[in-house]
Design a protein around this nucleic acid. Structure first.
Lengths: 296, 296
DNA sequence: ACATTTCGCTGACTTTAGTCAGTTGTTCGA
DNA sequence: TCGAACAACTGACTAAAGTCAGCGAAATGT
């Protein structure tokens, strides 16, 4: 299927979808407040926080949001309190009756989704759920943004923390790299290196770094993909991205080491055109070594 | 997967989808006219016709639509002409510059869809397209409405026409039922029978009828499902619906005849609990005969 | 300690979307 | 052939959504 055909499928789907369900949230109508206000209430209930975070999440004009919040407050559905950490900010949360109303929204939304699925036979329902779950994963994967960050930044530390935890779980003898030294971080920072994190909905879902091991030779380090995101091609995408980073650093060759337990990773490297080479370092956790020449 | 889990999947998908792409049509913004107006233009371009048909398709207030059309007309984008067949009606179509603008909308929409698909690897793109196509089919199938109609009504005749054409194509010796006599139609109408048509987007996509062959015995006739809708469970749903109709007519037993060439149909009858019986009529096109007792 | 920025807020405003009752011209059925 | 029904239209209206400039309090950088 060509890209043009694929995007036609997306458009066709989008059309039938928005016409029929897209408006799962239309069920928020007729609840005594305009749709936008109810949607806001729903959003607050799903994840309370600061007004600021809310605005970032749903992208409303600050003045407009303020006004909507005032309506909700007047109806006794939300409570606004100054944020103790920064008293310019205000925290929003639902009151008791706000939570009641929120539950009602939940129920309506649920009912709508159920009504969609209901007329299908059990088999078709199963197929639909499977297809939507698959599409969900891929749509999320497609909209992940890969950003270059400082390896000491919060997002990077969080991602690396999960990377280490996973290796520790998977390696028979565990994984205990010495405390990440500042030297480690600087190797993965400009000018000799870089570190990237892939973020979705504010959560780190994958990461990886490149450092310089020799003139013209880069090494990929600490590459990790969140469990829930395996099988969405995020690994391959990240790998390609890191190869690009390495190339931008002026390298012609990328290397990496890995452990034989990480079979999916190895399969991915091979698929991406890496070939096995001799051990090139004394990393005790590494058993397999790979290399790829740019453009190959 | 339980229905609750399935509707959770729908909701989860809906959330990530609407946040990220849902608004493929937001690309219509900033084109010098409000979104609604542009959407209307797009709709007219996709399928010109009478104002009436347009209103049915997109569900706008007649006054409101009229006004929007006037804007588009003033901008020289659409042309309205009285329908020669019924001069109360007006036909709408795009002018030359309207078509230009429409092409621009198409391009934008396409670009959006492409941008979604682009970051994925070829394999993942393929998977996404497949999942969305599957979801599309099932979502459409789920929202088909099955209506009881007069067998002489336009929708019914259209559906039966396609049914006959398909049998004629599939039977080795063709299929030429005598002209549908008025008697045929009355058999499939109350009080002794009924005819139903499944409609999606105004198009008949499936049909079927029930008539009374004896006290307590109904017969399913002229059951047909549109080619493009095979594999979406529409056949089973329709069959169950017709069994319900037969039961409502006071029958305890439903029969049907079919031809051995229609293997998928036969498989479906067997899956639905029908069992083979002896020939019970002299229909020359029938080779296989089935029966099911209500509640069995 | 002071200018600058940030955060949420208010007031004044516009645009978009939509409703509703009633009008005009046309067709259809008795 | 006449009244009912129908299609599209107009005018008068409302509600919802959103924009924008500017304000005051709190935080921040220098």
């Amino acid at each position: 299927m060509s890209i043009a055909e694929q995007s036609a499928v997306v458009r066709r789907f989008n059309r039938s979808y928005t016409q029929r369900i897209g408006a799962l949230e239309d069920s928020f109508l007729g609840m005594g407040a305009p749709l936008g206000t109810m949607r806001l209430l729903f959003e607050i209930g799903a994840e309370p926080g600061t007004v600021q975070a809310l605005r970032a999440r749903i992208g409303l004009d600050s003045g407009y949001l303020s006004r909507l919040l005032r309506h909700l407050e007047a109806d006794g559905l939300v409570a606004l309190t100054p944020d103790p950490e920064d008293r310019r900010r205000r925290r929003v949360e639902l009151t008791v009756s706000g939570r009641e109303r929120w539950a009602e929204l939940e129920a309506r939304s649920d009912e709508r989704a159920r009504a969609l699925v209901e007329p299908l036979t059990a088999r078709q329902r199963e197929r639909l759920a499977r297809a939507l779950a698959e599409a969900d994963l891929l749509v999320r994967a497609a909209t992940v943004t890969i950003e270059t960050v400082d390896p000491l930044a919060a997002a990077a530390r969080a991602a690396v923390g999960r990377y280490v935890a996973e290796l520790d779980r998977r390696f028979p003898a565990g994984f205990a790299p010495g405390d990440p030294s500042p030297a480690d971080a600087s190797e993965l920072s400009p000018p000799g290196g870089a570190f990237v994190v892939a973020v979705s909905d504010g959560e780190p879902v994958a990461c990886g770094g490149v450092r310089t091991v020799a003139e013209g030779v880069g090494e990929i380090k600490r590459m990790w993909v969140h469990d829930g995101w395996r099988g969405a091609g995020l690994g391959s995408r990240l790998l390609r991205h890191l190869e690009g980073v390495s190339h931008d650093l002026g390298h012609r060759v990328v290397r990496l080491d890995t452990n034989e337990t990480l079979t999916e990773a190895i399969a991915m490297y091979e698929r991406a055109g890496y070939r096995r080479i001799e051990r090139y370092n004394d990393n005790p956790y590494a058993t397999d070594f790979f290399e790829k020449t740019h453009g190959a």
